[in-house]
Design a protein around this nucleic acid. Structure first.
Lengths: 116, 116
DNA sequence: CCTCCATATCGACAGCTGTCAATCTATGCG
DNA sequence: CGCATAGATTGACAGCTGTCGATATGGAGG
């Protein structure tokens, strides 16, 4: 219809002109959200902060349970999420488990936001 | 008690030496998580991406509903979350609502991660 | 005024998330 | 070996989150 076409054209000018710029696709968005979701909890942010401030960027679980005022299983749970997201790595030394930042991981996570 | 103090000292040497470095407190972590939570959903990341790629960093809802394959109320819901997080701003022009990136907001969000 | 259209809001609901208590695993020590 | 301790795993549960359909709101045009 001429009328419909005319209306559409008018609306395009007013509102919806098609563009061809690079936009995040569903798969990319899903992957980025997976990382950012790990960073979207206050206690996990504090865990990362404590680990980062720790000597040599390392901290054992006993350093982490107390200042967060959380149970030990809960801290273990959060640490697992951070490891699965590729932000922390776990190294077991004797009875203790030491967690450290994966080099560059935080910067990569931040660039997921700035490079949208 | 001397005994308790001695035990504490021994444990400190084994594992938990106190440090005085700047660590995210509960309030800071809560606030940072509030922003990052808004960024932790794939559809919201795509919304930001589309808005950013849009002409002049603006896009109206009609540009956003279709490529995400979501219902209009759902898109509206996500946009509200992004506005509440200070990432987008809304400008109503006639019947249409235009959303644009808040200048510097994405960079500030990213620095929440890098400056842990 | 009445109607159409774009957007927002509401109510409901399934699925996910953070937390804890209890239990399991494995390492170091006597 | 047997026990104590650090940490992980499991199960349960309340609260939050993303989604939709239905409805409300509010401007544009006849």
């Amino acid at each position: 219809m001429d009328t419909a076409a005319a209306i559409e054209t008018a609306e395009d000018q007013l509102c919806c002109e098609p563009r061809g710029l690079p936009v995040l696709n569903a798969a990319e968005a899903h992957e980025a959200a997976r990382i950012l979701k790990a960073l979207s909890d206050p206690n996990r942010l504090r865990l990362l902060s404590i680990v980062k401030a720790g000597d040599g960027g390392k901290a054992c679980v006993c350093d982490l349970t107390e200042p967060l005022d959380l149970g030990q299983p809960t801290v273990s749970h959060h640490l697992k999420i951070l490891v699965d997201a590729g932000l922390l790595e776990r190294e077991k030394r004797g009875t203790w488990a030491y967690y450290s930042l994966v080099p560059g991981a935080l910067e990569r996570a931040a660039s997921l936001i700035t490079q949208l």
